[in-house]
Protein backbone atom coordinates (compact mmCIF):
# COMPACT_ATOMS: atom_id res chain seq x y z
CA UNK A 1 0.00 0.00 0.00
CA UNK A 2 1.17 3.50 -0.73
CA UNK A 3 0.12 7.00 -1.63
CA UNK A 4 1.18 7.98 -5.14
CA UNK A 5 1.61 11.69 -5.83
CA UNK A 6 1.53 13.00 -9.38
CA UNK A 7 4.25 15.61 -9.81
CA UNK A 8 3.64 18.11 -12.55
CA UNK A 9 6.20 20.35 -14.16
CA UNK A 10 6.41 23.21 -16.60
CA UNK A 11 9.45 24.50 -18.43
CA UNK A 12 11.44 21.60 -16.97
CA UNK A 13 10.73 22.65 -13.40
CA UNK A 14 8.45 21.14 -10.83
CA UNK A 15 5.42 23.38 -10.25
CA UNK A 16 4.84 25.00 -6.91
CA UNK A 17 1.42 23.37 -6.73
CA UNK A 18 3.13 19.99 -7.01
CA UNK A 19 5.22 20.68 -3.92
CA UNK A 20 1.98 21.32 -2.09
CA UNK A 21 0.55 18.07 -3.42
CA UNK A 22 3.73 16.22 -2.34
CA UNK A 23 3.55 17.60 1.20
CA UNK A 24 -0.16 16.82 1.35
CA UNK A 25 0.23 13.30 -0.03
CA UNK A 26 3.11 12.52 2.32
CA UNK A 27 0.95 13.62 5.27
CA UNK A 28 -1.83 11.30 4.13
CA UNK A 29 0.66 8.44 3.88
CA UNK A 30 1.90 9.19 7.38
CA UNK A 31 -1.67 9.25 8.65
CA UNK A 32 -2.38 5.87 7.05
CA UNK A 33 0.97 4.38 8.04
CA UNK A 34 2.04 3.69 4.46
CA UNK A 35 4.80 5.09 2.23
CA UNK A 36 4.52 8.05 -0.10
CA UNK A 37 5.84 7.78 -3.64
CA UNK A 38 5.83 10.17 -6.57
CA UNK A 39 5.34 9.81 -10.30
CA UNK A 40 6.90 12.18 -12.81
CA UNK A 41 6.12 12.05 -16.55
CA UNK A 42 8.21 13.55 -19.33
CA UNK A 43 11.53 15.34 -19.30
CA UNK A 44 12.42 17.48 -16.33
CA UNK A 45 15.73 19.03 -15.34
CA UNK A 46 15.09 19.35 -11.60
CA UNK A 47 16.88 16.87 -9.37
CA UNK A 48 14.12 14.38 -8.64
CA UNK A 49 15.91 12.78 -5.68
CA UNK A 50 15.38 16.07 -3.85
CA UNK A 51 11.61 15.44 -3.87
CA UNK A 52 12.50 13.30 -0.85
CA UNK A 53 12.54 16.54 1.12
CA UNK A 54 8.75 16.58 0.90
CA UNK A 55 8.42 13.10 2.34
CA UNK A 56 8.38 10.76 -0.65
CA UNK A 57 10.60 7.69 -0.51
CA UNK A 58 10.58 6.81 -4.18
CA UNK A 59 10.11 8.69 -7.44
CA UNK A 60 8.92 6.79 -10.52
CA UNK A 61 10.13 8.67 -13.57
CA UNK A 62 8.82 7.84 -17.03
CA UNK A 63 10.87 10.08 -19.28
CA UNK A 64 9.22 9.45 -22.62
CA UNK A 65 9.01 12.48 -24.97
CA UNK A 66 5.36 11.81 -25.79
CA UNK A 67 4.63 12.71 -22.18
CA UNK A 68 5.84 16.28 -22.58
CA UNK A 69 2.33 17.22 -23.67
CA UNK A 70 -0.58 16.30 -21.48
CA UNK A 71 -2.79 13.83 -23.34
CA UNK A 72 -5.18 12.44 -20.75
CA UNK A 73 -5.57 9.15 -22.59
CA UNK A 74 -1.83 8.48 -22.68
CA UNK A 75 -1.26 9.79 -19.15
CA UNK A 76 -4.08 7.71 -17.72
CA UNK A 77 -2.63 4.48 -19.04
CA UNK A 78 0.87 5.21 -17.74
CA UNK A 79 -0.30 6.34 -14.31
CA UNK A 80 -2.79 3.47 -13.97
CA UNK A 81 -0.03 0.99 -14.78
CA UNK A 82 2.13 2.55 -12.06
CA UNK A 83 -0.74 2.54 -9.56
CA UNK A 84 -1.15 -1.18 -10.16
CA UNK A 85 2.56 -2.00 -10.04
CA UNK A 86 3.12 -0.02 -6.84
CA UNK A 87 -0.12 -1.10 -5.17
CA UNK A 88 -1.05 2.51 -4.46
CA UNK A 89 -4.46 3.00 -2.85
CA UNK A 90 -4.49 6.79 -2.90
CA UNK A 91 -3.46 8.97 -5.85
CA UNK A 92 -2.94 12.69 -5.26
CA UNK A 93 -2.93 15.47 -7.86
CA UNK A 94 -2.87 19.23 -7.65
CA UNK A 95 -6.17 20.70 -8.84
CA UNK A 96 -4.33 22.80 -11.43
CA UNK A 97 -5.02 22.70 -15.18
CA UNK A 98 -3.16 19.39 -15.56
CA UNK A 99 -4.90 17.85 -12.57
CA UNK A 100 -8.26 19.03 -13.90
CA UNK A 101 -7.51 17.25 -17.16
CA UNK A 102 -6.11 13.99 -15.83
CA UNK A 103 -7.34 13.13 -12.30
CA UNK A 104 -10.95 12.31 -13.13
CA UNK A 105 -10.09 10.28 -16.19
CA UNK A 106 -7.57 8.24 -14.23
CA UNK A 107 -10.18 7.61 -11.54
CA UNK A 108 -12.52 6.09 -14.11
CA UNK A 109 -9.81 3.80 -15.39
CA UNK A 110 -9.15 2.58 -11.82
CA UNK A 111 -12.85 2.58 -10.96
CA UNK A 112 -11.88 4.84 -8.09
CA UNK A 113 -14.00 7.50 -6.47
CA UNK A 114 -12.65 10.97 -7.21
CA UNK A 115 -12.79 14.16 -5.15
CA UNK A 116 -11.39 17.24 -6.84
CA UNK A 117 -10.64 20.53 -5.13
CA UNK A 118 -9.71 19.04 -1.75
CA UNK A 119 -8.79 21.68 0.82
CA UNK A 120 -7.85 19.70 3.95
CA UNK A 121 -6.33 16.37 4.93
CA UNK A 122 -8.77 13.47 4.67
CA UNK A 123 -10.33 11.98 7.75
CA UNK A 124 -9.01 8.42 7.72
CA UNK A 125 -10.24 7.35 11.17
CA UNK A 126 -12.13 4.04 11.50
CA UNK A 127 -11.21 2.90 8.03
CA UNK A 128 -13.13 5.80 6.48
CA UNK A 129 -11.82 8.12 3.85
CA UNK A 130 -13.58 11.48 3.97
CA UNK A 131 -12.22 14.48 2.10
CA UNK A 132 -13.28 18.10 2.50
CA UNK A 133 -13.63 19.97 -0.78
CA UNK A 134 -14.83 23.39 -1.83
CA UNK A 135 -18.29 23.53 -3.40
CA UNK A 136 -20.58 26.31 -4.62
CA UNK A 137 -17.49 28.00 -6.06
CA UNK A 138 -15.90 28.59 -2.69
CA UNK A 139 -19.08 29.58 -0.85
CA UNK A 140 -19.19 26.28 1.08
CA UNK A 141 -17.46 22.97 1.74
CA UNK A 142 -18.59 19.38 1.34
CA UNK A 143 -17.09 16.44 3.20
CA UNK A 144 -17.15 13.60 0.72
CA UNK A 145 -16.70 9.95 1.59
CA UNK A 146 -14.93 7.79 -0.97
CA UNK A 147 -16.02 4.17 -0.79
CA UNK A 148 -13.98 2.53 -3.56
CA UNK A 149 -10.75 0.63 -2.72
CA UNK A 150 -8.64 3.18 -4.62
CA UNK A 151 -9.11 6.91 -4.03
CA UNK A 152 -8.16 9.78 -6.33
CA UNK A 153 -8.01 13.30 -4.95
CA UNK A 154 -6.80 16.63 -6.23
CA UNK A 155 -5.69 19.39 -3.90
CA UNK A 156 -6.72 23.02 -4.42
CA UNK A 157 -3.61 25.11 -5.08
CA UNK A 158 -2.61 27.41 -2.20
CA UNK A 159 -4.60 25.51 0.39
CA UNK A 160 -1.81 23.46 1.94
CA UNK A 161 1.53 24.78 3.12
CA UNK A 162 4.60 23.17 1.64
CA UNK A 163 6.98 21.73 4.21
CA UNK A 164 10.49 20.86 3.09
CA UNK A 165 12.59 18.77 5.44
CA UNK A 166 15.51 16.43 4.95
CA UNK A 167 15.40 13.36 2.79
CA UNK A 168 16.54 11.96 -0.51
CA UNK A 169 14.20 9.89 -2.63
CA UNK A 170 15.23 6.89 -4.66
CA UNK A 171 14.65 7.71 -8.32
CA UNK A 172 13.55 4.82 -10.49
CA UNK A 173 13.53 5.35 -14.22
CA UNK A 174 10.66 3.25 -15.43
CA UNK A 175 10.60 1.95 -18.95
CA UNK A 176 7.01 1.20 -19.84
CA UNK A 177 5.29 1.25 -23.18
CA UNK A 178 3.77 4.66 -23.91
CA UNK A 179 1.01 4.86 -26.52
CA UNK A 180 1.40 7.43 -29.29
CA UNK A 181 -0.78 10.48 -28.69
CA UNK A 182 -3.87 10.97 -30.85
CA UNK A 183 -3.67 14.69 -30.17
CA UNK A 184 -1.33 16.66 -32.38
CA UNK A 185 -0.11 19.75 -30.56
CA UNK A 186 0.50 22.52 -33.10
CA UNK A 187 1.31 25.48 -30.83
CA UNK A 188 2.00 26.31 -27.21
CA UNK A 189 1.73 29.89 -26.03
CA UNK A 190 3.10 30.61 -22.61
CA UNK A 191 2.46 33.96 -21.02
CA UNK A 192 6.05 34.49 -20.06
CA UNK A 193 7.26 36.44 -17.09
CA UNK A 194 3.84 36.57 -15.46
CA UNK A 195 3.09 34.73 -12.26
CA UNK A 196 0.30 32.20 -12.89
CA UNK A 197 -2.78 33.43 -11.10
CA UNK A 198 -3.66 30.19 -9.38
CA UNK A 199 -0.16 29.80 -7.96
CA UNK A 200 0.35 33.38 -6.81
CA UNK A 201 0.80 34.17 -3.12
CA UNK A 202 -0.42 37.70 -3.67
CA UNK A 203 -3.02 38.83 -6.19
CA UNK A 204 -3.74 42.44 -7.15
CA UNK A 205 -7.13 42.71 -8.80
CA UNK A 206 -8.84 45.63 -10.53
CA UNK A 207 -12.49 46.33 -11.30
CA UNK A 208 -14.58 48.80 -13.23
CA UNK A 209 -13.56 51.47 -10.75
CA UNK A 210 -10.30 51.71 -12.71
CA UNK A 211 -12.37 53.31 -15.52
CA UNK A 212 -10.41 51.94 -18.47
CA UNK A 213 -7.53 49.74 -19.65
CA UNK A 214 -5.22 52.75 -19.95
CA UNK A 215 -5.27 53.09 -16.16
CA UNK A 216 -3.92 49.63 -15.38
CA UNK A 217 -0.41 50.93 -14.89
CA UNK A 218 -1.06 51.59 -11.20
CA UNK A 219 -2.35 48.03 -10.77
CA UNK A 220 0.69 46.57 -12.49
CA UNK A 221 3.10 48.75 -10.51
CA UNK A 222 1.61 47.57 -7.25
CA UNK A 223 1.70 43.96 -8.43
CA UNK A 224 5.32 44.36 -9.42
CA UNK A 225 6.57 45.55 -6.03
CA UNK A 226 4.68 42.72 -4.39
CA UNK A 227 5.70 40.02 -6.93
CA UNK A 228 1.99 39.50 -7.30
CA UNK A 229 -0.20 38.23 -10.13
CA UNK A 230 -2.79 40.57 -11.61
CA UNK A 231 -6.48 39.73 -11.86
CA UNK A 232 -9.74 41.49 -12.69
CA UNK A 233 -13.50 41.35 -12.32
CA UNK A 234 -15.66 39.86 -15.01
CA UNK A 235 -16.96 43.04 -16.67
CA UNK A 236 -13.35 44.17 -17.03
CA UNK A 237 -12.47 41.00 -18.96
CA UNK A 238 -15.74 41.11 -20.91
CA UNK A 239 -14.93 44.65 -22.04
CA UNK A 240 -11.49 43.38 -23.13
CA UNK A 241 -9.74 45.82 -20.81
CA UNK A 242 -7.79 42.80 -19.56
CA UNK A 243 -7.24 39.27 -20.92
CA UNK A 244 -9.79 36.58 -20.05
CA UNK A 245 -7.29 34.55 -18.08
CA UNK A 246 -7.29 37.29 -15.43
CA UNK A 247 -11.02 37.02 -14.75
CA UNK A 248 -11.67 35.75 -11.22
CA UNK A 249 -14.94 34.84 -9.58
CA UNK A 250 -17.63 32.24 -9.74
CA UNK A 251 -17.39 31.97 -13.51
CA UNK A 252 -13.68 32.72 -13.77
CA UNK A 253 -10.68 31.48 -11.86
CA UNK A 254 -11.08 30.68 -8.21
CA UNK A 255 -8.07 31.86 -6.28
CA UNK A 256 -6.98 31.56 -2.66
CA UNK A 257 -3.80 33.59 -2.23
CA UNK A 258 -2.37 34.77 1.09
CA UNK A 259 -3.24 38.32 0.17
CA UNK A 260 -5.85 39.69 -2.25
CA UNK A 261 -6.13 43.37 -3.15
CA UNK A 262 -9.48 44.47 -4.58
CA UNK A 263 -9.10 47.83 -6.29
CA UNK A 264 -12.31 49.49 -7.48
CA UNK A 265 -14.31 46.26 -7.31
CA UNK A 266 -17.79 46.39 -5.76
CA UNK A 267 -17.75 42.87 -4.31
CA UNK A 268 -20.70 41.26 -6.08
CA UNK A 269 -21.56 37.80 -4.77
CA UNK A 270 -20.25 36.14 -7.95
CA UNK A 271 -16.93 37.91 -7.59
CA UNK A 272 -16.60 37.07 -3.89
CA UNK A 273 -17.28 33.39 -4.60
CA UNK A 274 -14.00 33.15 -6.46
CA UNK A 275 -11.80 35.04 -4.02
CA UNK A 276 -13.22 34.67 -0.52
CA UNK A 277 -10.86 31.86 0.41
CA UNK A 278 -7.97 34.35 0.27
CA UNK A 279 -6.35 34.54 3.68
CA UNK A 280 -6.22 38.34 3.87
CA UNK A 281 -8.39 40.64 1.76
CA UNK A 282 -7.68 44.35 1.31
CA UNK A 283 -10.34 46.53 -0.31
CA UNK A 284 -9.87 49.98 -1.74
CA UNK A 285 -13.13 51.52 -2.90
CA UNK A 286 -14.48 55.08 -2.84
CA UNK A 287 -17.93 53.90 -1.82
CA UNK A 288 -18.09 53.08 1.91
CA UNK A 289 -21.22 51.00 1.20
CA UNK A 290 -19.47 48.72 -1.31
CA UNK A 291 -20.34 45.12 -0.32
CA UNK A 292 -16.69 44.10 -0.60
CA UNK A 293 -15.90 45.80 2.73
CA UNK A 294 -18.05 43.17 4.49
CA UNK A 295 -15.79 40.42 3.16
CA UNK A 296 -12.54 42.30 3.77
CA UNK A 297 -9.93 42.22 6.52
CA UNK A 298 -8.51 45.67 5.80
CA UNK A 299 -9.87 48.54 3.82
CA UNK A 300 -9.48 52.13 2.78
CA UNK A 301 -12.45 54.19 1.67
CA UNK A 302 -10.85 56.28 -1.02
CA UNK A 303 -10.00 56.89 -4.66
CA UNK A 304 -7.87 54.18 -6.25
CA UNK A 305 -6.04 56.75 -8.38
CA UNK A 306 -4.90 58.48 -5.21
CA UNK A 307 -4.36 55.50 -2.88
CA UNK A 308 -2.79 52.85 -5.10
CA UNK A 309 0.34 54.81 -6.16
CA UNK A 310 0.91 55.75 -2.50
CA UNK A 311 0.54 52.12 -1.50
CA UNK A 312 3.16 51.13 -4.07
CA UNK A 313 5.56 53.78 -2.71
CA UNK A 314 5.04 52.68 0.91
CA UNK A 315 5.70 49.06 0.03
CA UNK A 316 8.85 50.04 -1.83
CA UNK A 317 9.99 51.81 1.36
CA UNK A 318 9.24 48.72 3.40
CA UNK A 319 11.30 46.55 1.07
CA UNK A 320 14.14 49.09 0.88
Amino acid sequence: MSVLIFVDHADNQVKKSSYEALTYGAKIAEQMGVTAEAIVLGTVSDDLASLGKYGVKKVHHIANDTLNHVDTQVYTKVIATTVTSTGATVVVFSHNQTGKAVAARLSASLKAGVVTGACALPDTANGNFIVKKTVFSGKAFASVKITSPIKVISLNPNSFTTIAGEGVAEVVTVDIAVDPSKIKVTAVNKVSGEIPLTEAEIVVSGGRGLKGPENWGIVEDLAKVLHAATACSRPVADAHWRPHHEHVGQTGFQVAPNLYFALGISGAIQHLAGVNRSKVIVVINKDPEAPFFKAADYGIVGDVFDIVPKLTEEIKKLHA
Binding site: A142, S143, G302
Partner: peptide, 21 residues
Protein backbone atom coordinates in the same frame (compact mmCIF):
# COMPACT_ATOMS: atom_id res chain seq x y z
CA UNK B 1 -18.13 5.66 -5.54
CA UNK B 2 -18.51 8.75 -3.35
CA UNK B 3 -21.17 10.36 -1.20
CA UNK B 4 -21.44 13.71 0.58
CA UNK B 5 -21.58 13.18 4.34
CA UNK B 6 -21.77 16.80 5.41
CA UNK B 7 -21.74 20.38 4.16
CA UNK B 8 -20.28 23.34 5.99
CA UNK B 9 -19.87 27.07 5.54
CA UNK B 10 -16.63 29.03 5.87
CA UNK B 11 -16.21 30.91 9.15
CA UNK B 12 -17.46 34.49 8.98
CA UNK B 13 -14.85 37.26 8.69
CA UNK B 14 -14.13 39.11 11.93
CA UNK B 15 -14.92 42.45 10.33
CA UNK B 16 -12.98 44.94 8.31
CA UNK B 17 -10.34 47.17 9.84
CA UNK B 18 -10.60 50.53 8.10
CA UNK B 19 -7.57 52.76 7.64
CA UNK B 20 -7.91 56.47 6.83
CA UNK B 21 -7.27 57.45 3.21
Amino acid sequence: LTSVVEYSLPPAKAGVKLVAA
